[in-house]
Computed example of a mutant assay.
Amino acid sequence: MKQVLELSAVDMSFRRRLLDAPHEAIRDAFGIHVPPHFRMRFVERDADLDALVVLPEPAATSDELDDADLDSVSGGNAWTDPDARW
């Protein structure tokens, strides 16, 4: 990625290709095949912006437990359950 960003800073044709067709631009410039199912997008920061920030994924808003939480609570807690059998 470092090489891609460095080249995009000095080669405007490559930069435009990254914006329009990143898979092909990387393949043609570096011989690296990025699988088509790997989705990516390059963006430019507008001149009037001081920072361009990509927001994180939204936090889950469901009251339901996820699989990891369910695994941790299923079957009770043997340490506090006097009827637990080992």
Rank of each mutant, 00 (worst) to 15 (best):
S74G: 04
H33C: 04
D46I: 02
L7V: 11
V4H: 03
T61I: 06
L65G: 04
D71S: 11
A78P: 06
T61E: 14
A68R: 06
V10S: 15
G31Y: 03
L55T: 13
D50M: 12
L18E: 01
D69I: 02
H23K: 06
A84M: 08
Q3I: 00
W86Q: 12
R45G: 11
D69W: 02
D11A: 00
N77R: 07
M1A: 15
L49Y: 14
R85L: 13
V4D: 01
D46N: 07
D48T: 11
D71F: 11
A51R: 14
I32Q: 08
W79R: 11
R41S: 04
E64Y: 08
F30A: 00
S8H: 01
D28Q: 15
L65H: 07
V10K: 15
S62A: 06
L5V: 03
F42P: 03
I32V: 14
P82G: 03
F42D: 00
V53S: 07
A25V: 04
P56H: 00
S62L: 03
F42W: 01
I26P: 01
D69F: 04
S13C: 05
R16L: 10
G76D: 08
D67T: 09
A29W: 04
D11H: 00
A29T: 01
D71Y: 07
G75T: 02
A21K: 13
F38R: 10
A60R: 12
R16M: 11
G75H: 07
R45H: 01
S74H: 09
R41Y: 02
Q3H: 10
V4C: 03
L55P: 06
P82Q: 03
E24P: 04
D83K: 12
R39E: 14
L65K: 09
M12P: 06
G31H: 06
S62P: 01
P82M: 09
V4T: 08
F42A: 01
A25S: 02
A51Y: 11
D11K: 03
D67H: 05
V10F: 04
N77W: 13
N77T: 08
A9M: 10
R16F: 05
F14P: 00
D20Y: 03
I32L: 12
E64T: 08
D28K: 08
A78N: 07
D20L: 15
L70P: 02
R85E: 12
V73W: 04
M1D: 11
L7W: 05
H37Q: 13
R45T: 10
D20Q: 14
R45F: 02
A21T: 15
G31R: 05
I26V: 15
P36A: 13
E6K: 11
D46E: 12
A60Y: 04
A59F: 12
W86E: 14
A25R: 00
R16Y: 07
A84F: 15
G76V: 06
P35H: 07
I32N: 00
D50Y: 12
R17V: 02
G75I: 01
E44F: 01
T61K: 10
H23C: 00
R27C: 04
E64P: 01
Q3R: 12
L52R: 05
M1N: 10
